[in-house]
Design a protein around this nucleic acid. Sequence first.
DNA 1: TGATAATAGGGTTAAAATAGTCCTGTTTAA
DNA 2: TTAAACAGGACTATTTTAACCCTATTATCA
Lengths: 137, 137
Amino acid sequence: MLQVSRKFEYGLHAVTYLATKGLGRVVTVKEMADEMGFSQEFLSKAMQSLKRAGIAASVQGVKGGYMLGKSTDAITVADIAIAIEGEPHLVRCGVKADRCEIFSSCHHRGYMNTLQHKIQVLLAATTVHSLLKEVAG
Amino acid sequence: MLQVSRKFEYGLHAVTYLATKGLGRVVTVKEMADEMGFSQEFLSKAMQSLKRAGIAASVQGVKGGYMLGKSTDAITVADIAIAIEGEPHLVRCGVKADRCEIFSSCHHRGYMNTLQHKIQVLLAATTVHSLLKEVAG
DNA sequence: TGATAATAGGGTTAAAATAGTCCTGTTTAA
DNA sequence: TTAAACAGGACTATTTTAACCCTATTATCA
């Protein structure tokens, strides 16, 4: 329950990595994968998602790679999560109301939706900029 | 990402079901499974977890079944989650530090631990009693 | 006292989600 | 025109979750 996917972790690490390299510097997926010990192909998928969301920008061709698409204080952890995992659905009936057999008498759907919103607020409250100031504990 | 397991949903529904039946009334797994459209065997596992955590109490033998083990305002959503899923680990390095390849230079471990704690606080802030007053939306 | 209806729980299988790989195409610097 | 990189579709492997099966135990009741 409530565990973040590896793809999200890769994406978050990649963003902080790019951030430490500065806004303009182009970094290859290979460099990041080697540096952090991730699967290059899989990290590549995460980068593509980040690019589509505008969080990263890419340069194609030889000497190509990725860089940040925005400043570090314009990217929140929520942005990265949504880019990589899509909109979260804490509880199943949020996704498929017709599948839930006790939909009409459900006692916790409202609560779960509220909870999901609160978690989203928590994620949106942290920018990459503030994350970089964190010390590993 | 960030989706609750079916076992937890079953458990939560079962607890609210027991709560509506009153503290003393013994209810069988069969009744709950039929009523809510769940797998009887799987719900049974969830009930066993809830019992071990003291959230539910059981009566064995014919005429046996489950009832709540505490009053509804002494059971939080966090209690149910921990009973069924164990302590949550939002991020992997919280589970296996030695497996994480960038442990020493990790920029987000501290943040993730804090985040996890905040989510736990959110879950602990809702009792079954307050949940029953929620209206499905 | 034996049949039955229930919880308790170990072990196994099935299904779904996640993680990772492979391959082909496109872009572009040198 | 070659090579290094991104882009992305399709596939496979692994892991996790969900469900099922089977046996044991408990306790009611005819």
